[in-house]
Design a protein around this nucleic acid. Structure first.
Lengths: 120, 120
DNA sequence: CTCGACAGTATCTACTGGTAACTGACTACT
DNA sequence: AGTAGTCAGTTACCAGTAGATACTGTCGAG
């Protein structure tokens, strides 16, 4: 029941946030940092198949949104550690609800897709 | 075959579903159909600022995924009614969790963004 | 004196989200 | 008779972005 903001207003900030959550990599990053801080390469290797440019974009956006902090250690070789903020961590529950839904209905969806494709 | 729960495997169907949910319009369509079936124009006008081409794409994809049904009445002028399937309706709860999170944390996020932009 | 580690940039291409105009079959208005 | 309007899209086109690939800087190790 949406009382507060009008999700259908294109200017509604809620929609902006939905866009963020909809971003393919944001969710994955949150799930990766769930167990503790990680470095850039750890994230990149852990997620897999993500281009560094895209990962950087995602991380910067999440930092800007206050979902995580970026800590730079001016060493050689460089070291950068990403940590979830409390707000970022509070995302884990909503995301879990989503992934649980996805895993529950996954078979039905793939089945539906195959039927659809068989006809069309 | 893909093991069930590995969200980090690019081939994991869960990720495909996350992509769908991340789609800007899918969520809006579900929220619109929450209160009952609607016609194409009703959806288009209700959502606002959505191009017919894009809406069609979204609806076809959702039909393919089994989230809604598309019923064509061969009349003139044509009439097409979109209805949520039970599976589509079951998405309302996860989406509500998400929008509630968004509304709760919206102020914090915009604040964080402003701070970030002020420095950078 | 080249190699590899780390945390990214730089550059280019492919795809897709979005805009504007058009279709087809009929009805209602002028 | 001719024109405009309705509905549910389609077609042609463009711009922005996601992604793939290659490169940068700095250092110690071999």
């Amino acid at each position: 029941m949406v009382t507060k903001g009008d999700v259908f207003d294109p200017n509604c900030p809620t929609r902006v946030i939905l866009d963020r959550l909809g971003d393919k990599w944001t969710v994955l990053v949150v799930l990766r940092l769930r167990t503790g801080p990680q470095r850039f390469t750890e994230l990149r290797d852990g997620i897999g198949q993500v281009a560094p440019k895209v990962l950087t974009q995602t991380l910067r956006r999440m930092e800007r949104d206050g979902l995580l902090t970026r800590e730079v250690f001016p060493e050689i070789p460089p070291r950068v550690v990403y940590t979830l903020t409390p707000m970022g961590a509070s995302l884990i529950d909503p995301i879990s609800v989503l992934t649980e839904w996805a895993e529950t209905h996954m078979p039905t969806i793939t089945q539906s897709q195959q039927q659809y494709d068989a006809i069309a």
